[in-house]
Design a protein around this nucleic acid. Sequence first.
DNA 1: ATGAAAGCGCTAACAA
DNA 2: TTGTTAGCGCTTTCAT
Lengths: 338, 338
Amino acid sequence: MKPTIYDVAKEAGVAISTVSKVINKTGSIGKETKMKVLDTIRKLEYQPSVVASALTKKRIQTIGLLVPNIANPFMAEIARSIEDCGRALGFSLIICSTDNDLDKEIEYISILKQKYIDGIIIATGLKNDNAIKELIDSKIPVVMLSRDVPSLAVNTVVVDDFLGAYQATWFLKELEHEKIAMITEDVNFPAVKARVLGYQEALEEAGIRYDEKLVIKNNATYIDGIRAAQELLNLPDPPTAIFASTEVLAIGAIRGARELGFHVPKDLSVVGFDDTILASMFDPPITTVAQPIHDMGKKVIELLCDEINESKKVKQRIVLSPELVVRGTTSRNEKSLS
Amino acid sequence: MKPTIYDVAKEAGVAISTVSKVINKTGSIGKETKMKVLDTIRKLEYQPSVVASALTKKRIQTIGLLVPNIANPFMAEIARSIEDCGRALGFSLIICSTDNDLDKEIEYISILKQKYIDGIIIATGLKNDNAIKELIDSKIPVVMLSRDVPSLAVNTVVVDDFLGAYQATWFLKELEHEKIAMITEDVNFPAVKARVLGYQEALEEAGIRYDEKLVIKNNATYIDGIRAAQELLNLPDPPTAIFASTEVLAIGAIRGARELGFHVPKDLSVVGFDDTILASMFDPPITTVAQPIHDMGKKVIELLCDEINESKKVKQRIVLSPELVVRGTTSRNEKSLS
DNA sequence: ATGAAAGCGCTAACAA
DNA sequence: TTGTTAGCGCTTTCAT
């Protein structure tokens, strides 16, 4: 049987509370006894039970991560970043793929609570914020990732979607593109709306008239990307550049363009968003707005720890800047010279 | 404060053991009291503490998944499958990315043990099996996924790598390719070796002489794929087809070929392995040996549950068949007609 | 069928 | 500085 704190205490000839103290570095213990305890812990290969301590401390050194789908490369990369940052602080990571389904989200939150999880990171995008509200009311440390809940005071880490879209669009403008289209998901999330706004702002500053026929909203699948691009390219006066608000949409758009005989980037420039493995492995590698995935994980864990330790009671909202990564799907607009 | 089992008992006017029994469906309880208890549970919104019960039952309804890297699309898809199958049975999933680093693997295993995890799924590939041996000796339910430990009796789920490689190679042969190369990771894992063997076997049956210059072993990065393909295509008598033992290698190979002016699939056919999102989103979509990701997750959870419940004491080794998915990176060899 | 009580392994007062 | 002890919330005999 695995040794318990009692075994250690007996073997070392001290009380269990003494052992507990040296393990948790609480209270004060004599250097002598401390060494003795440490020695027998090593000798017995004793490992404290996280579960037993969780019963009193209400913490099990584990955090939950709610994502739409861990199979989505962007989420998987985010998860990896969070896992690493969390591990450094002793946290394990439970993955919860909700498919953006409210019922699953509620179910997962309920389960995580039952398990005395230390905190929850929410990176799902839902229409309904009630589940989140209740969560926060129940005093469980929460931080939102890439998701704003405007009506709530809650720790949040987001990237500047407006800026990212602006950068992408402006870059296209500097490449002398004038008809710049946008493909995006058709939902009401602040993040999505901000990207459209950033696109519009850049156009305006560039002196390009905003044309709503050039903005295609739909779902965000590969197929949607293909369709949207083809719809755009079949226009009487088709765009020479497309800003896709997602890597998958960008890849779909490229595919759609190619099927119509357009060459990327010669005939059509495409900029994506996220910078997942999909962008760098595609041929040509995709010019894209990179989310600072590593920083996002780091900040999110920092905020969560602050919340867990109650060291800071003020909620924070951290906005990280994205960065345009220029690769092979964009080029100067030749038509504008004619 | 969250209600405890005591609150429920008091409110319902019964003993806590009675409440415990109705929750766990153990022992026998009168229909009357059962209803009464159930009602007050609902009324109080009582949720039993998994942690407290774990203290006696030694189970926390959570399993650990050791993978090289959750950011790897194949592993992320596997994780999703396992998550879903596990959730149906009430398990949460803790992700542990080891980077195939023995120290991290050991550290993770140790942490998982401390947390009274119910079982561990190991999908990492390591040179050293000692950590696994100890794990199994310590009676924690374990199942290996895509990893054989020949010297150990342990539940295992693998796909038939030999068969997959055979199918890929044979398919290429049926396309009348005669010079078929292979690119693979250079490690000693049974899975990797089996793929090389399957390739060789198919060649032999096809009456094609095995040429070791056509087998490039290296790491398994995108860059390695590029280099390997270029090395092959620069041969005096270059291959017309490449079987890459990984999606990433396949994508690298295609890129390498294109840089040299080869068209895929006209000048060079490429077959990959895994069938992740990378394969279907690439342009053209990649012909690949699909691993039955969903079945793998299902079987792995089944085995783990058997082990957890001790219902079956015989260790099993389940071999799943891969399936060739023909897409756009393969075509008939035109040169053979000349 | 139901209840009383002894743990599970640890933490945290409180004493000494 | 060290030890005693009462929980934490639940499961599980063993009585009743």
